[in-house]
Simulated scan of single mutants.
Amino acid sequence: MICGNFDAATSNLVYRSSSYITRFFEDCELDLRHDGSTRGRTAPQREWTRLVGELSALNMITSLDRAALATYCGAYTLWAEATEAIQKFGAMVKSPTGYPMQSPYSSIANRQAEMMIRIASEFGFTPASRSRIAVPDEPFPAVRSTNHCTSAWEMAI
């Protein structure tokens, strides 16, 4: 049994969807259930979906925002990865010559944070920028559904 994407035409392995995986767990008498959370959604896609949901509920997004939002989601992912690496390896590392130096992940995290703050202020993600944004009365129909969110992310990258 295999979970995930593969070339079904050339594979001898049987693909199992979530209901089959849950049934497999039950047959093994395991108290597990496949909830679909392992499907191939990347960190930027998850952030994209979260933000589009929030912005759509506030009527604050259109398809014109796609590139800026995709850039924000990419920066968010790099920032999160760099921050995780700093927590794992520390803010100071040993240079090739043996001297202590600032972790390269620190500059990555700082650059991505700066980019996120600039884009966040455009979308009203900060309290100060939110106070300057006028929310339209009518929703923008182009970005209302979840399916459109995913396809818009795929088009943005």
Rank of each mutant, 00 (worst) to 15 (best):
Y20P: 05
Y20Q: 00
I21V: 00
T22F: 00
R23F: 05
R23D: 04
R23W: 01
F24N: 09
F24C: 09
E26K: 04
E26C: 04
D27I: 01
D27R: 05
E29R: 04
E29A: 06
E29T: 00
L30C: 09
D31N: 11
L32S: 03
L32P: 13
H34R: 07
D35V: 03
S37I: 00
S37E: 02
R39Y: 03
R39D: 02
G40Q: 02
R41P: 02
R41Y: 05
R41T: 10
A43Q: 07
P44T: 10
P44R: 02
Q45G: 11
Q45M: 14
R46S: 10
R46L: 14
R46H: 08
E47L: 04
E47F: 06
W48C: 05
W48I: 14
T49M: 14
T49W: 10
T49G: 12
R50T: 15
R50S: 13
R50C: 14
L51Q: 11
V52S: 07
E54L: 09
E54C: 13
E54N: 11
L55C: 12
S56A: 15
S56F: 12
A57Y: 15
L58S: 12
N59P: 11
N59K: 02
N59Y: 07
I61H: 13
I61D: 14
T62V: 15
T62L: 14
S63V: 15
S63E: 15
S63L: 14
S63T: 15
L64I: 08
D65A: 12
R66A: 10
R66V: 14
A67C: 06
A67R: 15
A68Q: 13
A68R: 09
L69D: 10
A70H: 12
A70Y: 10
T71P: 08
C73Y: 01
C73T: 08
C73N: 06
G74N: 06
G74W: 14
G74S: 05
G74K: 00
G74M: 08
G74H: 03
Y76S: 05
T77K: 06
T77N: 10
T77V: 06
T77E: 03
L78R: 06
L78V: 04
W79H: 09
W79E: 09
W79Y: 13
A80H: 02
A82E: 02
A82H: 01
T83G: 12
E84H: 07
I86Y: 00
Q87H: 03
Q87N: 03
Q87L: 00
Q87R: 03
K88A: 01
K88T: 03
F89C: 03
G90S: 01
A91D: 04
A91E: 07
V93E: 00
V93A: 05
K94G: 10
S95V: 04
P96N: 09
P96T: 00
T97H: 12
G98I: 03
P100L: 14
M101E: 06
